[in-house]
Design a protein around this nucleic acid. Structure first.
Lengths: 134, 134
DNA sequence: GAAAGACATCGATGAACATCAATGCAAGCC
DNA sequence: GGCTTGCATTGATGTTCATCGATGTCTTTC
């Protein structure tokens, strides 16, 4: 049930392959893989689902707790959960009657690091002019 | 030319409003605003554009340097740049014949922090079972 | 094993999106 | 003024996506 995720995590060389969006131009392959994950985040329903799953105390959530929180049909929620899972952002397991989802923190960690810039960036003094451009 | 960006940055209370995706459930409004930015990142061409702009030494790039790097028409590149700008990820200015784009680091910083979890998270010991769920 | 509940998958549909050719607009040059 | 170059906008088109109802699969219970 959990074997159709993206390989973006890279299983070992994850940190080595992509030092970040902001330091060096992405090649086409990296961009394609990353875009799939960001696209999964590019929907308000999926963002809320991910947020509900990630912030859950026990670390996992039953689908039966997620579905009623939205004004959407059960198949639609199921569809969004599938996309999040295919993006490698969450994973799930069936236990008896219910299916439980949890966050894959390695993926969100990776995204966060990809969006981070190396601490003391020069930052070409744009702050003075950016806001004032009428 | 730079006054149609999203208001996600919040102009002061940015850090205060959204402690992160992963700590508390997003409300609908927050999710909608955030999703717009992530959606802008959900395309390989836009990711490469952003990466090329962000990693540029001088801090800004002429459109004339971006367009030839892709196998796409000039209007298409212009369209993608517009979406990135509307998401608040980049900004631009015309100087004479050319238009220059630069990164808005506050936005990528914000995304990175939204995806980060508070250092010492419990992390319900999933590592042992996640990979083995056939 | 029949019935019921929880989720996933399928097929259809309307909306959103990526792309392009054509055109518009601004700036520099003759 | 007219011409050229750099970039944005417009309108059209094929594709992808979000959503739903119907249906299938798995599990528990009787």
């Amino acid at each position: 049930m959990s074997n159709q995720e993206l390989v973006v995590l890279g299983q070992g060389d994850a940190a080595a392959c992509c030092p970040g969006l902001l330091t060096a131009p992405l090649d086409e392959g990296q961009a394609t893989e990353l875009a799939k994950v960001f696209k999964a985040l590019g929907d308000p329903v999926r963002l809320r689902l991910l947020s509900m799953i990630a912030s859950r105390a026990g670390g996992e959530v039953c689908v039966c707790d997620l579905t009623p929180a939205f004004d959407l049909s059960q198949p639609t929620i199921s569809h969004h959960l599938k996309l999040l899972r295919q993006a490698g952002l969450i994973d799930c397991e069936r236990r008896g009657t219910w299916v439980y989802y949890w966050l894959v923190p390695e993926m969100t960690d990776r995204l966060a690091s990809v969006l981070s810039r190396p601490a003391g960036e020069p930052l070409p003094d744009r702050a003075a002019t950016a806001g004032a451009a009428s």
